[in-house]
Design a protein around this nucleic acid. Structure first.
Lengths: 220, 220
DNA sequence: CGCCTTCGTTATAAGTTGTAACTCCCCGAA
DNA sequence: TTCGGGGAGTTACAACTTATAACGAAGGCG
């Protein structure tokens, strides 16, 4: 499962300890949030003393960056697996929702409040692009090259401005649908996971389904 | 402007210092995020020594809770003022956007990643309800009591489950439009403010406008 | 005018991140 | 099998944080 780079026992041990550190970190994040993640607390729970963990991660920031990378990786793999099993746009939406509900703090680690100075490393943005590409592909597969509606100012704007990751860019109609897909579902999910619907007494999954339905319509 | 409770010189001085503390806190949050807010750093910049600030706030958490309250207050006042000047749903949407762009970290303080254990105090949720009511009213004013569409499963669900703040609850069609309004605009705004659109090369305000337009349509 | 509250201070405790220096042991090569 | 090198883990330490306690000073209020 865990693809370790080299085979030397030292490398294997090192990779194993790194995974154990990350496991404790996730546990801690799930219960107290990422801002409360403490290197010392992890070391304590592992029976190690503080500075030992610095053999494995340059510091707290690098550990968090690694967790972000793993979160993106998990999401990308989950969505790709669903797509590979024939899930359409609706299936991907529900897969995304299930993934987010499984660990809200992991979702927020990716799509939550950003740290003002932070810049995601190259490999992480590459995985983020992989997520987007999966969703764009599903959008493209939904409406098989439907004729662009003439009155779509945003789509015509997208026609000229799409420095997208994928070079073979999808038609603007598809990109517009993808952006609506992404932002609408994120809007419902993030507010639900943050607890802004509690006390309102309705079932958030029905709002999610209603938004999803709006996205599947010819005119979304 | 600043409604100080009592008139005694001590009270006036106290309120003034509290405001100064909060001003420095906002400055710090805007540049480094809420998680990096340091009571000691604020005290240093004010020429005071650490524990002095504990005369004014019980601790870091209470200070942040106060900032959250003020952020909600600012948003509620801004939206109410816009509504009072005749702004409709579109005007409120653009007002919300301008308010968010003016200080992204302030927006995230309200709608960003939640701290797992945190429960907003009573008075804060009251202001949050005020924000919602303003938006619900604008949604109600948009379509003057249009006949409920028969095929609207979420609207019919809302009919039975709306433990809303306002007792005189709006019709489910209106509530559904409000929820779509809130979640769609938040979806675009939060992803934009978090920088997830940078490098894509399109103008986020056009996506915002496109989503807004979708919300103004009879069938949103 | 004097008291008393409140402010701001320093000292301290218990945390945190992160570095430095030292030991020790394991792995690999001769 | 033995020996050396390097990585792992340790303690000690610096600098920072939140927060409390105890003290002095200074102000307003009766």
């Amino acid at each position: 499962m865990a693809r370790t780079g080299a085979d030397t026992p030292r490398e294997r041990y090192r990779a194993q300890v790194r995974e154990e550190i990350k496991a404790h970190a996730w546990e801690q994040i799930a219960t107290a949030g990422a801002s409360a993640l403490s290197v010392n607390a992890i070391a304590r729970r592992m029976g190690l003393s503080g500075p030992a963990l610095y053999r494995y991660f340059a510091g707290r920031d690098e550990l968090i960056a690694e967790l972000v990378r793993d979160a993106y990786r998990s999401l990308a793999d989950t969505l790709r697996a669903a797509a590979a099993e024939g899930a359409g746009l609706a299936g991907l939406a529900r897969t995304l929702r299930a993934w987010a509900l499984a660990d809200p703090q992991r979702y927020f680690l990716i799509y939550g409040t950003p740290v003002p100075g932070y810049r995601a490393p190259e490999d992480t943005t590459a995985i983020a692009d992989e997520v987007m590409r999966t969703l764009v592909d599903a959008c493209a597969a939904l409406a098989p090259a439907g004729p662009a509606t003439p009155e779509a100012p945003f789509a015509t704007h997208l026609l000229g401005h799409r420095d997208w990751a994928g070079e073979q860019s999808a038609p603007p109609e598809v990109l517009h649908r993808f952006l609506a897909f992404w932002t609408r579902l994120h809007g419902v999910l993030s507010l639900e996971l943050a607890g802004h619907f509690t006390g309102m007494g309705f079932r958030p999954e029905l709002l999610f389904e209603a938004e999803l339905e709006s996205l599947l319509a010819p005119r979304f």
